[in-house]
């Protein structure tokens, strides 16, 4: 049995990175906050590079809890969208029409430590991805991976895949 000759690694990487950039670039709020996404295979790590305007408590100083909550929510949403796009990319499709974003139903944030005035990193784990609803756990850390700064659990309404391959949340 023979199988198709694999694509050059650079072609594969470029297709994956282009899809990820397109997904992230279309949200003005993500660029306003300066969030970035790094990829290893299908695994995403979100980065919130430190900026003085992310501070919420200048006395400590500490990052604003709202900025951290936003970071976790964005990480969860991009990770969910990425999980919808990934199989298409791997099937060799160019992703011209990106799916609509899932809608956040609720998000419960645990503030475990105060946010240091340094970069923060986050990864989301999809606990359950149903056709309509998804549950996601997401955690952010700073200097020490074993000492998370914030943790959240969220529920999301998934966009409905329509026959022509476009999506809708309605």
């Amino acid at each position: 049995m023979s199988r198709a000759k694999p694509e050059p690694i650079q072609v594969v990487k470029e297709r994956r990175d282009a899809a990820l950039s397109a997904l992230v670039a279309r949200v003005p709020y993500i660029s306003f906050m300066g969030f970035e996404f790094e990829r290893r295979g299908d695994e995403l790590t979100a980065v919130m590079p430190y900026r003085p305007d992310l501070i919420g408590n200048p006395a400590l100083p500490a990052l604003h809890g709202g900025a951290l909550a936003a970071f976790l929510e964005v990480t969860a949403l991009i990770t969910l969208s990425w999980s919808m796009v990934w199989p298409k990319i791997e099937a060799g499709e160019t992703v011209d029409v990106l799916p609509k974003f899932p809608k956040t139903i609720d998000l419960t944030v645990d503030y475990l430590r105060s946010g240091l005035p340094r970069d923060a990193y986050a990864r989301a784990e999809i606990t359950r991805a149903g056709r309509r609803y998804a549950s996601v756990q997401v955690e952010a850390w700073q200097d020490n991976r074993a000492r998370p700064t914030v943790h959240a659990t969220g529920h999301f309404l998934m966009p409905v895949l329509m026959p022509d391959n476009r999506t809708s949340n309605d």
Binding site: V27, Y29, M33, G56, H64, G65, G66, A67, A69, A70, F71, E73, V74, T104, L107, V109
Partner: peptide
């Protein structure tokens, strides 16, 4: 974005 609303409500 919901994140901005979260920041407002947290504040």
């Amino acid at each position: 974005h919901g994140g901005a609303v979260s920041a407002l409500m947290d504040t």
